[in-house]
Design a protein around this nucleic acid. Structure first.
Ligand SMILES: Nc1ncnc2c1ncn2[C@@H]1O[C@H](COP(=O)(O)OP(=O)(O)OP(=O)(O)O)[C@@H](O)[C@H]1O
Length: 713
DNA sequence: CACGCGGATATTTTT
DNA sequence: TATCCGCGTG
């Protein structure tokens, strides 16, 4: 093969067009790549990372590459290693959250954090908001009475924090987020996290920034370390994240960001697509070697032009777009997208399975080629039933749902306490799980007494507070609980993680109780707990093998040895054991494991390998599939009824639709129904406006047989 | 203090 | 349709 005659440098540039080559090889200064859907930005970023190492004179550990998901990070890392034929272990390829957590762990003392801090996920943080509301006593309960939703307050606080706003600056800077109640809860919330030794997701970024701003030495250290910074999906970064990378690249300004504002789909959680224009403004005024390079990638290599045409019809309805030339299709016409109209949800699902069957039989598709996207997770149900009936293997990306299950949260609350006993929130959660005859009144009494003595619940118990202040029935129960905690805590520190955990679950007897229950939903709960044991086992297995590995090799300076990476674990936290596990699971999600589960598990008796992927349109970002189904293309569902009140929200829904459509390589099927059950009530949805926006020449419409039959009447 | 019943309520998306 | 919450009973 001719290929092998080329040097590594030429090889890095093969199969790239001229704009891609320019983007890869420009190393002098700041750079922004405006990369339309399917234009090869992932390819460019990967090649650029390889180029930096093999031609730019950079070492892997000089580079920070920030991605949107752990999945994207793992994929990028492994592709770079594949190209270079070497490990790039020292390179930081990770999400903002992982990078910041890593910095905070490494410098926890300077950051003013105890070494056993824990990370609160969205569920925990909602509990903290409720707690803060409660501590406002009557003002809080009044608010709840009058219909204030804790989730709404949480969203405002999170949004504020993503703009680097603190309770102190909230009033001046909070803008549309501000109201008095939120301000009060905000302070209480921050105090609550501090008391519990916990950081929420937003804290990871803000606290890292605060650390860098306040500690010149550390700032210089990281500025010196990261000689080149790349950011993927820049249109979905928030203010804090932008500030984080700005701080780090301050001197050398060797920063490359890639984004596409048509694909901005996270403004609901604080993402600022305007960061793109701001970047151009901020870095565009520089001269000489620090001059800004703006690249546009317009050639779409992914989709057939029929698919692109329809997608373009949709996205062009958005008026507030950064002016960018339309995408240029690089592939042939292909099959027209099909809009299938079903009589019911059931029929919609049947269409999907039938079509998959057909494509596999007649057109050599395999299961991995298919993805089904929907706006809300609830929509996966009908599909799953249909797939189970037909025996088609599938995999559902469930987002964060697993960690929101009560029984799973319970177990994590235990684990958090073992690491960080000061966590009152967690302690209160599980003090009576499974039931130990410690009820509301007892907990209330203890809380008040502990607060009065200025102690955390756990310390107060250790000091024997309960013995003096509670009736003796309660003292017995509480003492037994405390003993159990201490016993397990001790074991959690001395035993290997997996061994400790399965023993603990056994001792707890929670799963046993659920298995013996007569309630049907407890079956699933018990299964979730089993799943948890598997997760722990897998984690400890993998992290142990990495540990072995890194003892043998690596020791490239204090900063870069703090975390090691592996294909199978997205990142390893600085912390060992249980704490490391907690930090790890708090940052990974279901979607991250997609690749590792595709192509696996060939079911006995089924010739086709792999499985069909089902996921929300949000999780679809960055992926591509040969055939894509988008189900539930109906008003109120997509666009979702919660997003129909403002033009901005509708535009984001439209971008979401565009992102989903442009995931398809060869075939795109869009389905809607004329009758659907929502919360058990019948509705008669009308076709999504997004489908109406597609020129009728660009899409084929097909009514189900049942509907055609009815139409004949 | 535990448990069961009934009624209100709702999931949009996720690092 | 399922889950959560509050209330009443044992
Ligand atoms: N120069 C090229 N020649 C041929 N194929 C290419 C080229 N560049 C990219 N591709 C192919 O185009 C497809 C899309 O590339 P990639 O995933 O990098 O796009 P992307 O810009 O990340 O997409 P999106 O922004 O929509 O997520 C991939 O299948 C990739 O292999």
């Amino acid at each position: 093969m001719r290929r092998f005659d080329l040097g590594i440098n030429e090889r890095l540039l093969t199969d790239l067009n001229q704009s891609q080559i320019d983007a890869v090889t420009y190393l002098k200064g700041p750079q922004i790549i405006l990369a339309g859907a399917g234009s090869g930005k992932t390819r460019v970023l990967t090649r650029k990372l390889a180029w930096l190492v093999s031609c730019g004179g950079y070492s892997p550990w000089d580079i920070l590459a920030v991605t949107f998901t752990n999945r994207a990070a793992a994929e990028m890392r492994s592709r770079v290693e594949e190209i270079l034929g070497m490990s790039v272990r020292g390179m930081w390829v990770c999400t903002f959250h992982s990078a910041c957590l890593r910095i905070l762990r490494t410098c926890h003392i300077e950051a003013g954090l105890s070494d056993n801090f824990v990370v609160y996920d969205a569920n925990d943080s909602l509990d903290a908001v409720k707690e803060a509301l409660k501590s406002l006593s009557s003002r809080g309960s009044d608010a709840l009475e009058s219909g204030v939703k804790p989730g709404d307050i949480q969203a405002r606080i999170s949004m504020a924090k993503s703009r680097l706003i603190t309770p102190e600056t909230f009033q001046q800077q909070g803008d549309e987020l501000y109201d008095e109640l939120t301000e009060e809860v905000f302070s209480g919330y921050e105090a609550c996290l501090a008391r519990n030794n916990a950081l929420d997701f937003d804290d990871l970024i803000c606290r890292a920034i605060r650390l860098l701003r306040s500690n010149e030495k550390i700032l210089q250290r990281y500025r010196g370390k990261f000689k080149y910074i790349l950011v993927d999906e820049f249109q979905d970064t928030n203010i804090a994240q932008y500030e984080f990378v700005s701080l780090l690249c301050e001197g050398h300004k060797r920063i490359c960001v890639v984004g596409d504002d048509d694909q901005s789909i996270y403004s609901w959680r604080g993402a600022m697509p305007g960061n793109m224009m701001d970047f151009i403004g901020r870095f565009g005024s520089l001269e000489g070697s620090q001059e800004l390079k703006v690249s546009q990638l317009l050639e779409n290599y992914r989709s057939t032009s029929a698919i692109l045409q329809a997608s373009h019809d949709v996205i062009s309805q958005n008026l507030m777009r950064t002016k960018m030339d339309p995408l240029i299709p690089m592939r042939g016409d292909g099959e027209m997208p099909l809009h299938y109209i079903a009589a019911s949800e059931r029929e919609e699902a049947a269409f999907v399975t039938t079509t998959i069957d057909w494509l596999i039989r007649e057109h050599d598709y395999c299961l991995d080629d298919f993805a089904i996207f929907y706006r809300t997770h609830a929509q996966s149900r009908g599909l799953e039933e249909s797939f189970l009936r037909r025996g088609i293997p599938y995999r559902v990306v469930r987002g964060v749902a697993f960690y929101s299950r009560a029984e799973v949260k319970d177990i994590f609350a235990y684990l958090k306490i073992f690491v960080n006993p000061e966590d009152d929130l967690a302690l209160k959660r599980i003090i009576n799980v499974p039931t130990r005859k410690i009820g509301k009144t007892t907990i209330g009494k203890m809380e008040t007494a502990a607060a009065a003595s200025g102690l955390s619940l756990y310390s107060w118990l250790l000091a024997g507070g309960h013995v003096k202040s509670l009736p003796k029935k309660a003292v017995e129960a509480v003492s037994a609980f405390l003993e159990f905690l201490q016993f397990q805590m001790e074991r959690s520190r001395t035993l290997p993680l997996a061994e400790f955990f399965s023993d603990f679950m056994d001792d707890l007897g929670y799963a046993r109780q659920l298995k013996n229950s007569v309630k049907p939903e407890d079956r699933q709960r018990a299964e979730n707990l089993d799943e948890l044991i598997t997760i722990v086992q897998e984690y400890s297995h993998i992290s142990a093998s990495i540990a072995d590995d890194s003892h043998a090799a690596d020791s490239s300076g204090a900063l870069s040895s703090a975390v090691d990476y592996d294909d199978s674990l997205f990142f390893r936290t600085v912390s060992e054991g249980l704490q490391g596990f907690l930090q790890y699971v708090s940052l990974v999600s279901d979607a991250d494991f997609l690749d590792s589960e595709m192509g696996l598990e060939p079911e006995p008796g089924i010739m086709e390998r792999g499985s069909v992927s089902m996921m929300s349109v949000h999780s679809a970002k960055g992926l591509e599939f040969k055939a894509v189904f988008m189900i539930g293309m109906e008003e109120e569902l997509f666009p979702h009824f919660n997003c129909m009140s403002t033009a901005e929200a509708i535009d984001e829904e439209r971008r979401l639709c565009y992102v989903a459509m442009t995931r398809a390589r060869d075939r795109l099927f869009l389905t809607s129904t004329v009758s659907r059950r929502i919360y058990g009530k019948k509705t008669n949805p009308s076709t999504s406006r997004f489908l109406m926006e597609i020129d009728s020449e660009h899409i084929i419409q097909e009514y189900s047989r049942a509907l055609r039959w009815m139409q004949d009447w």
